[in-house]
Design a protein around this nucleic acid. Structure first.
Lengths: 263, 263
DNA sequence: TAGTGGTCTAGACCACCAT
DNA sequence: TGGTGGTCTAGACCACTAT
């Protein structure tokens, strides 16, 4: 390639050497998933460095998601998590009618895990610009209903979803006021009102979590979040709902299969 | 919700207070994108803390991608980057014939940026298990050709792609030996051989970069990567190619629009 | 050469956890 | 109560950048 590539081999600092030693111990199995690392003070003395240096080495491993520190207990090798998959069929009518539950519940049940979801708030709100764009509503008034949901598998938080529904659609319905949506959940209620979800648009990015997200999702250090801006479209491709999902990236994967020519 | 929620308000440590002060200075515009922060030594003395503490505050900002440290120069407020979007149509025949270039080139040109791509290696190789799975080839022999490509926009590295092609398909063709693929690029050559890309499966995850990826992609601290495992399928849904893309998440987004019922 | 970030030392006190 | 990680101090030397 034509770019002048700087030769930046990493310098062999003390903390990197300690980190490398730990990495290889994890790699060859002498430190198995779930095992506790030697304490920072032990690492310091065995490697002949200051505690801060040993600590920096541990920080490097935590940053790349290899280990997790637990205050007062120790530092542990992370166990490889099961990956959840969110695919194209998750909004299909068939899935909804076969299972009678929400897409999330169906997915988690299919993996023999126990799903839970909690609606933590419903309120009429001013939509963020990105949402107003996609729904075609005004950004300057309380033109949407905002529903905040938290999703768990086996008691562990997996994702947060902020669903925005135009007030004109939600007004006077269960969508605007209740967490009891009945059989088939959210998309069945949209169908009742004439909005059958037919297309879905998903815009995906990733970033590091905010401190609030990190605590709320109980994220270990060094785990990013996937952010999915999902738009539900009806038969005439009219948008009727936007949901922003924030999902822990270490437990979540997305799986899309599509024809390459638009339909 | 039924979960007992620990009240973990963040303790107001000294480093967090310094970080908060910097965050609000960035927020209210007194530190604009591109500006240099006060030096660590200056921050330490103005806030009455040790340099290590000021440094920790800066580290917290860097971790969340707000600032970037440059050795010997200073710490700078990051400028919001333009986001590139990789969507569903990128493999369509129409795009290929209209533009005559690869999907990546077309996308970057559409944003008035200058694309570059370099093939850095071609070799016959043993496929990783995930790739062998999806291609339906043996994992234990050199059953694939592996092509490594680096992609740039305006000279900045955007992504790396590792393309795996079954040896049976690539054998004796330009796919196995050349970076000169001719008009329409890779997928046009597959079409020549009877493999017209018709469906694409994309499995998306995110994680922190490895140290090698961080240097190679010139990633600032705190920027995760999107990992897309892309499978190209022909008219009969036979897989003929798998590419693993590693993309910097701060510059990249994915955009999928699909019918909710499978086709 | 002066100023910057990068790393390190050798201490100290605190909060948390298991016993 | 003793050991753990979390944070902090007050120094020090090195590597890099600009002048």
């Amino acid at each position: 390639m034509s770019e002048t590539k700087k030769d930046r081999r990493q310098p062999e600092t003390a903390s990197r050497q300690v980190a490398a030693a730990l990495r290889s111990a994890i790699g060859d199995g002498s430190l198995a998933p779930g095992d506790r690392l030697p304490s920072e003070r032990t690492l310091a003395s065995t490697h002949g460095v200051a505690r801060n240096t040993a600590r920096e080495a541990v920080r490097q491993l935590a940053e790349s998601g290899l280990v997790t520190a637990e205050h007062g207990r120790g530092v542990f090798v992370r166990v490889a998590p099961r990956l959840m998959r969110f695919g194209q069929l998750r909004y299909s009518k068939k899935l909804r009618e076969d299972t009678g539950v929400s897409p999330f519940h169906a997915e988690v049940l299919a993996q023999n895990r126990i799903p839970n979801a909690y609606l933590t708030s419903i309120e009429r709100a001013v939509p963020p610009a990105s949402v107003a764009d996609r729904l075609g509503v005004k950004v300057s008034s309380k033109s949407v209903v905002r529903r905040e949901n938290w999703y768990f598998a086996d008691g562990e938080p997996m994702q947060v979803g902020l669903t925005y529904i135009p007030w004109e659609i939600a007004k006077g319905t269960v969508l605007a006021r209740s967490d009891e949506l009945g059989p088939g959940d959210l998309y069945a209620r949209f169908a009742d009102r004439g909005y059958e979800i037919t297309y879905t648009r998903e815009e995906v990015t990733a970033r590091m979590p905010t401190p609030e997200e990190a605590t709320g999702l109980m994220l270990p250090d060094g785990v990013p979040v996937l952010v999915v801006l999902h738009t539900g479209l009806d038969q005439q491709r009219r948008p009727f709902e936007v949901t922003e999902f924030v999902m822990r990236a270490d437990y979540t994967g997305l799986d899309y299969t599509m024809p390459v020519d638009a339909s």
